[in-house]
Amino acid sequence: MRTNINKRRIVQIEETIAETPTVKTLVFKDSLSYSAKPGQFLMIWIPRIEEIPMSVMINSKEGYAAVTIRKFGFGSTALFERKKGDLIGLRGPYGKKFTIRKNCKKILIIGGGTGLVPLLRLVSYISKKKIKSTIVMGARTKEEVFFEKLTRKIIDETGSLLIVCTDDGSYGIKGSTVSVMSKLVRDDTFDCVYTCGPELMMKGVVELSNQNSLPVQASLERYMKCGIGICGSCCLDSSLVCQDGTVFNEKQLSTMLDFGISYRDKDGRKVNYA
């Protein structure tokens, strides 16, 4: 019988990892989340407080998965404050995954902040497939760099490369992920670009990919209520991020007039990115 991903599972948080003062990873056991595809998300229920969409983070233990939260709004702060032993609810995983074309040999991965979560699942996936990757990990400052050690561990002996950059130059290369990417695509060849992070960063990555005729896939984020294509809260032009995404390719992205321009608030009104 097919497992019903809509049926809520209550799981216990078995471990918490402080990534930075404002970013935390919560580890739990759940077989559906363990086998989630890169780019898919869970609807996480914080009982009597909120339910929020979260990309599925990898965990080294079989049958386990995690979510990595940046303390930001009401729901994410509540989830951030969960402790070991607390119960949370899960449904999903939902959404479309990153896809890898046949004959793909080398890819470029550009991630910012918690946008690295679906990308690390992708990196972990391709490390078994002999596809080489160059990963650009961006943060504003040294204090906000996380997942570096974990990424190095995953790509160890795979011939892949990790480049860390910070906006203020306090760690790694000084500059944005997009400026690092512009040098990389000039000096090297890639079969595809994968990105997730702040939308304006992704917009820059997509534009640069288009200019270099590189296929590109981006995992987007929008406010969601249902996660299953009923409420329409996550609509982006004629697409529903929850069901048609979260991952979109260059062709789909080129038709989205609001990509990198605006998102919809909880009441459905459009708000421009600053």
Binding site: N4, N6, K7, R8, W45, I49, E50, E51, I52, F74, G75, R91, K225, C226, I228, I230, C231, S233, D265, K266, D267, G268, R269
Partner: peptide
Amino acid sequence: PMKGYPNPTIIPLGGGSYLNAVGLSNPG
């Protein structure tokens, strides 16, 4: 404009039935 209620607002109950209390969120 109305923001509606906090989530959970829509619950799939299984068997093709759903429960919702979105709270009439709308842009006005």
